[in-house]
């Protein structure tokens, strides 16, 4: 899995405190998702692009990631302009293209990309463990953080198991088709994955008991707010509040 591809780096955003980044990402995303006016959506889009550029992630990697996500958006473009009633702009065969539909699709594209770029810049520049860690510091329910932590820890282990099983069935001449044999094989593969996961979970818990686990998840490393984190928080906070305020008062209309 090409998972934490963006998490290594030394840019300003990579070094920022993940707690600040998580909070900024959540508030900014929620506000952008609620924007209704086109000018504000443009503003959010441009701001997200600037934010992402400060993360100094290779441009091609970003483009590839955004391209995958925009496949969903493309699907919207194939339907919304035709299905939204309103002022008919032109006819495309038997279908009418409405200007309202095009506006709606465009606004979704802007908002979606603005949020995703901001989250790439803020969240993907941290490793999963440091995100889990800061969730614990942000007083998220301890059980949820532990689940998150263990899931991420053993995801790769099970992924390896899965890869080995797929290799094993390939060696025995399996090639996937649309038939019962294929589905049953996949089902047994999934079943075996659960058996392995279940057994490993038991072993992990016993190992933890041996090391004196009593249900508390100790935090040894603590984050410290630096000047740069406060600057990030203030800038993001100001932009978020400005966007929310202008949306609330309906200024650009």
């Amino acid at each position: 899995m090409t998972c934490e591809a963006f998490s290594s780096g030394s840019s300003y955003l990579h070094r920022a405190d993940p707690r600040v980044k998580i909070l900024c990402a959540i508030f900014y995303s929620v506000v952008v998702a609620c924007l209704s006016g086109m000018p504000l959506q443009y503003a959010a889009f441009i701001f997200s692009a600037i934010l992402l550029s400060t993360a100094r992630i290779p441009f091609r990697m970003i483009l590839r990631r955004l391209a995958v996500v925009n496949v969903f958006v493309l699907a919207l473009w194939l339907v919304i302009p035709f299905s939204t009633p309103g002022h008919v702009l032109f006819h495309a065969g038997p279908l009418d293209v409405s200007s309202e539909g095009i506006c709606a699709a465009f606004s979704i594209t802007l908002k979606c990309n603005a949020i995703i770029m901001a989250n790439l810049a803020l969240l993907s520049t941290s490793s999963m463990f440091s995100l889990a860690h800061s969730l614990a510091h942000l007083k998220v329910h301890s059980k949820l953080v532990q689940l998150f932590f263990f899931t991420w820890r053993y995801l790769h282990v099970l992924e390896d198991e899965h890869r080995r099983m797929v290799q094993a069935i390939r060696i025995r001449g399996f090639s996937p088709r649309t038939d019962m044999l294929t589905y049953r094989t996949y089902a047994y593969l999934v079943g075996l994955l659960f058996v392995r996961g279940y057994e490993r979970g038991e072993r992990v818990y016993k190992a933890m008991l041996c090391r004196g686990f009593d249900g508390t998840f100790w935090l040894l490393h603590h984050f410290h707010l630096h000047g740069r984190d406060i600057i990030l928080a203030v800038v993001m906070g100001l932009v978020t509040v400005a966007l929310a305020g202008m949306e609330w008062m309906g200024i650009p209309h």
Binding site: T151, T178, G197
Partner: peptide, 27 residues
Amino acid sequence: LKSEDIPKVALLTAAFFVASLIHVPVG
């Protein structure tokens, strides 16, 4: 969720995550 079940549930969650990456042919 009891705390002794956390590793087990987490492992099963991970198993589901891996299983959801499996693509099966449909026609």
